[in-house]
């Protein structure tokens, strides 16, 4: 177990180092002056940036100061607004995390039990219904789905709001950045109405993101349940005359759940892409919307920092999921990543 932990820690560290190097290299590939691209302005009076922009430093020292600046939370300033990027990103990141967490939770809560239902009825009517509908679900282009939802539910029926996180009527002080938590913690009037309003704003974006994730989880679970049901140990359990309930809870459930976690890890990067697109369409004030605005404005420091941060978050989450599934199930291929 310790070896696995060390291995994954090592792997994560190396990956993050390469990512930081890439983001440093990006400043040289973007049009314009590399130093300006790194800092976002001509003069910044923080210690690492002063060293970085001095004439005497060579490229290796520059990289070293760049790492120092990153660790110190000095991420440069945005071309477009002139504000420090660190504050911007820390304000936006929770919104994206909130949306992704709710979407994944819903997809998991619905997808896994229904996947079990389909897998237990392998090649029967209910399985075929689930399979064909999930096939339709994951063929949807996510942006078109979001537009359809807006068109039907927000514009035609006027049931739900179509953009933003909260109606402007409510003034919720910033606490954690997670809107639902903020409202619960905040000491404001009309707490209930604010909460309801935030939930209403959440429904459509969450639905669009979880729609596709749900289909993937359903199919994965169904496949792994069907595989488990065909194994010898299930057959032997059946011949011994164990009741179906015992077989299901003791043998099928645990073994079928094992492959789901790695699939979740692989799906993270697709999920992030979908979240970013959905954020843009619903004007959800998160990191994806901000990054796409940044590319329209050619705001190079913002692109560099945003790319670094999002990929670091994705790498850390994926690696922890991989590590956990490795710890739970030591028999699975332990060299799925970076094997030699």
């Amino acid at each position: 177990m310790i070896r696995t932990l060390i291995r994954y820690f090592n792997l994560t560290f190396l990956t993050l180092l390469i990512l930081v190097m890439l983001s440093f290299g990006l400043a040289y590939f973007f049009p314009g002056d590399p130093i300006t691209n790194l800092m976002g302005a001509n003069k910044l009076d923080s210690q690492p940036f002063l060293m970085l922009s001095s004439q005497q430093t060579n490229i290796f020292m520059q990289f070293w100061y760049y790492v120092q600046a990153l660790l110190a939370g000095e991420w440069g300033v945005s071309f477009a607004t002139g504000k420090p990027l660190y504050q911007d990103i820390m304000r936006l990141l929770p919104a994206t995390l909130e949306l992704s967490i709710y979407a994944v939770t819903i997809a998991l809560i619905l997808g896994i039990p229904l996947g079990f239902l389909a897998g237990m009825n392998y090649h029967k009517k209910i399985d075929n219904i689930f399979m064909s509908s999930s096939m339709i679900m994951y063929s949807f282009p996510v942006f078109w789905l979001a537009l359809l939802l807006i068109l039907l539910i927000s514009l035609q029926a006027q049931w739900l709001p179509m953009s933003g996180r909260l109606s402007l009527l409510f003034n919720v002080p910033h606490y954690s950045g997670f809107i639902l938590v903020d409202i619960l913690v905040a000491d404001i009037e009309n707490k209930r109405f604010a909460f309801n309003n935030a939930v209403q704003h959440l429904i459509l974006p969450t639905l669009s993101v979880s729609f596709i994730a749900f289909a993937v989880f359903l199919r994965t679970t169904r496949r792994s349940v069907a595989d488990v049901l065909e194994t010898q140990y299930i057959k032997s359990a059946q011949t011994r005359g164990l009741p179906a309930k015992t077989i299901f809870f003791r043998h099928v459930l645990r073994n079928a759940l094992l492959p789901v976690l790695p699939i979740l890890a692989v799906q993270i990067s697709t999920l992030v892409t979908n979240v970013m697109i959905v954020e843009t369409i619903f004007s959800w004030p998160g990191i994806g919307d901000w990054l796409i605005q940044a590319i329209y404005e050619r705001d190079y420091p913002a692109i560099r920092t945003g790319m670094l941060l999002v990929s670091v978050v994705v790498v850390i989450i994926t690696m922890s999921l991989e590590c956990i599934s490795q710890l739970i199930d030591p028999t699975r291929d332990r060299f799925a990543y970076a094997r030699r």
Partner: peptide, 22 residues
Amino acid sequence: NHVLDILMLTPTLLIAIIIVAI
């Protein structure tokens, strides 16, 4: 493998944004 893992873990949209920026 290390380089490919990073490519695989980076969301498509981010790769696209970087390429568009360059």
